[in-house]
């Protein structure tokens, strides 16, 4: 196995608010290979965005990474100064966000916002940067980009704005693109187009992609590997097949039941997981999902299970998988 492009080790991020320490991310480990597409899924509030912002060094007060390491091309990003991170952001790691309607600055043209990213990181003239910007807009499928480049964001539709965001993100040829819910705010048909675009560009430009979403259906098509997060922790990790056909964590099973499946022709009932995510100021001592899990045992409430390696690519943290302990602790 070759060296990972990004390796996150035991990262913990908290927000120090007046109600206490919100432990948004409570120790996550994962990695991504060059050219790979990794999905991070989980319900809203499970810590996906905070994980991404921590990697990018974009946490705002009162958030702070309190522990762990983030190795990117052999350098620990968490050790870098803000100034050093500025030349990583947008250059080597780029990011796009959920709401394309608000992610572009309304008072500058789309072209201006692409050009500034290029000029920031590459030694080019304004004119060359503009040519590059036109080329990027064409690449992401904006019709007549020579004209559209001088449009303001409000003159673009939602789908086109997300395309423009992708153009900005990829303009400096980053080795990693983090897409945080890139399609959540879009219509279903536009969603499919944007996902198709991300998939296509990943192959074309050989960029690694972390695709963050609460919708398992979205990752199925794009990602080869998937991480399932809940309560600031990774509950299960595996290749697409592991997660979709051999889910081992009751939370993953619950998530799968709550999304429509394209591969099942007959109409299915969608069953949302009952209950709400845990309080992260006082996170439960045991498994965070125990309060909502249909298989909860006594030990689940008391102690967080270790990961069980199900196969070379597949691991999950659940007492059900830990035969010996669960038999002792079960009722």
């Amino acid at each position: 196995m070759n060296k990972p492009l990004l390796e996150v080790k035991n990262m913990k991020t908290s927000f120090y608010t007046h109600v206490g320490e919100v432990q948004a991310v409570r120790g996550v480990d994962f990695h991504i290979q060059p050219g790979e597409a990794l999905g991070i899924v989980g319900e809203s509030g499970s810590g996906k965005s905070v994980t991404a912002m921590s990697i990018m060094g974009l946490l705002q007060y009162p958030g702070r990474v309190k522990e762990g390491e983030v190795f990117f091309k052999d350098e620990n990003l968490l050790k870098k100064s803000q100034r050093e991170m500025m030349s990583v952001r947008g250059n080597q790691i780029a990011m796009i966000f959920q709401d394309p309607m608000t992610s572009l600055n309304p008072v500058y043209t789309v072209g201006n916002q692409i050009v500034e990213a290029i000029v920031r990181h590459q030694k080019t003239s304004k004119k060359e940067a503009r040519e590059k910007a036109v080329e990027m807009l064409r690449l992401v499928g904006i019709p007549s980009p020579e004209r559209r480049i001088d449009n303001y964001p409000h003159e673009f539709s939602g789908g086109m704005r997300q395309r423009a965001m992708i153009a900005i993100a990829l303009s400096c040829e980053p080795s990693l693109l983090i897409a945080d819910e890139p399609t959540t705010a879009l219509d279903v048909t536009i969603q499919a187009q944007i996902l198709e675009l991300i998939k296509e560009l990943r192959e074309k430009l050989d960029t690694s992609v972390i695709l963050i979403t609460h919708d398992l259906g979205v990752v199925a098509d794009v990602c080869s590997r998937v991480i399932v997060m809940y309560g600031g922790l990774i509950m299960e990790e595996g290749e697409g097949g592991d997660i979709f056909y051999r889910p081992s964590h009751p939370y993953t099973v619950g998530l799968l039941k709550s999304v429509p499946r394209m591969d099942k022709a007959e109409k299915q009932r969608l069953i949302p997981i009952p209950g709400t995510p845990p309080d992260l100021v006082k996170p439960p001592k045991g498994c965070p999902f125990a309060a909502r899990c249909p298989h909860t045992m006594k030990i689940c409430l008391e102690e967080m299970p270790a990961y069980t390696q199900i196969s070379k690519t597949h691991r999950a943290a659940c007492w059900l998988l830990d035969k010996e302990k669960s038999e002792r602790g079960g009722e």
């Binding site: 990018m56 974009l58 803000q82 991170m85 500025m86 030349s87 990583v88 952001r89 947008g90 250059n91 780029a94 990011m95 966000f97 709401d99 608000t102 992610s103 572009l104 600055n105 309304p106 500034e116 990213a117 920031r120 990181h121 965001m165 900005i168």
Partner: peptide
């Protein structure tokens, strides 16, 4: 607090 400020920072622009 706006999203486009986060976008600007994500581009690596100076504060």
């Amino acid at each position: 607090q706006q999203d486009y400020i986060r976008t600007a920072r994500a581009k690596g622009l100076d504060e």
